[in-house]
Design a protein around this nucleic acid. Structure first.
Lengths: 203, 203
DNA sequence: GCAAATTAATGATTTATTCAAG
DNA sequence: CTTGAATAAATCATTAATTTGC
């Protein structure tokens, strides 16, 4: 079971649950710091790297879109097909369903969830304004997700961080931990957070 | 001129020359270590980060392709247009030009240049087999470019590297430097290196 | 039951497109 | 208009499900 030399990450059940929970909470493109925090937390449940978290959100989002697109296409061509033979489907339930709901995530695709995440940062954001200063900011950064704020430190590049640093992060009572008051059981309701425009953050 | 608070990198003339020289030598998608070395070298000519180098190659390659595609499309529709009015352009010079050359870079798009870079590693690659071991490998890694070899160290994630570390790299007589015997003047000939399959590297 | 064969999911990369600074 | 930066789409590749024949 232990993935000795396994070439690619496969999430444990707990990791997957938490990730999906976060996704359902509205997270789509978490920032570098957010990913770092998620990674730190999830590493408690098994081996994981920042890039795994990054890719997971990337793929999950993309495949959600794709699923929706396909569904819509199917509906559309069905509709066209029916229209074509001059048949008006005035009671087509499945058609109404999609037509009425639209893209559930479309409006939250590009927003920064930094401010809207009551779940994620509920520990209070006033006194952790300079988190990352003291803690060797774990910028995992695949596809260049480093947020502007971090970039000011980040003058030249990134280097590897050894595993201990992160593990020890778990033992010390860090801010990161109380950002995860997740119940990991309620996996049913839809996106509830209200998207903010990211422009309010100073760039 | 000094970019105090300049939001985006703009390459100096020297940096650009070297980058283009490398590009012409066959580099398309340099590995993390290669980018690190390039960055280290180029930082001598001005402020630069790994991700700048990464993006530069990314964009340059993409825009080369795009330029070529447009040219081909234009030629194609011209050709079709002419064919359509039953006119055979038997002396169309520009058409012949594209038709005869094809995609200059098409075959080198996906290869790893790790082994083929006589220019880049000409300083000898035997005694630097463990480069990166001692030097806190600067994995800049936007879009997850970390190569398999480096990944073994890289257990959990990356963190920021401060600028001094890299600057001091320049003062110390590092291996990195003699990898750049560039003349930066001959900017005319085409890609000359022979692409190797990356599969020979141990995974 | 149980592996070999096949298919479906999904982690990881690369390429295309878009945004925006200058 | 050029081009650095970022995101989305397409693709590759490996792992997990599952089917199938024994």
């Amino acid at each position: 079971m232990s993935p000795t030399g396994s070439s690619r990450w496969s999430p444990t059940t707990e990791q997957l649950m938490i990730l999906e929970e976060l996704y359902k909470s509205g997270f789509r493109t978490p920032s570098a710091s957010q990913i770092q925090q998620i990674t730190t937390h999830l590493s408690f449940y098994g081996r994981i790297e920042g890039k795994n978290v990054f890719y997971w959100f990337q793929n999950h989002k993309a495949r959600d879109r794709q699923k929706l697109r396909r569904k819509l296409n199917k509906q559309l061509q069905l509709q066209q097909q029916l229209q074509f033979q001059h048949y008006q489907p005035n009671q087509d339930i499945s058609n109404n369903f999609v037509a009425n709901f639209g893209y559930p995530y479309a409006s939250t695709t590009n927003i920064s969830l930094f401010n809207s995440s009551s779940l994620f940062f509920q520990g209070g954001d006033a006194n952790i304004s300079e988190r990352g200063m003291n803690c060797k900011w774990g910028v995992y950064n695949p596809q260049c997700l480093v947020e502007k704020k971090d970039m000011t430190f980040c003058n030249y590049g990134w280097t590897l961080m050894d595993a201990n640093q992160q593990s020890s992060c778990c033992t010390k009572p860090l801010k990161t931990l109380d950002l995860f008051p997740l119940t990991t059981t309620r996996i049913k309701e839809d996106c509830t957070t209200t998207p903010h425009q990211p422009s309010s953050c100073d760039i």
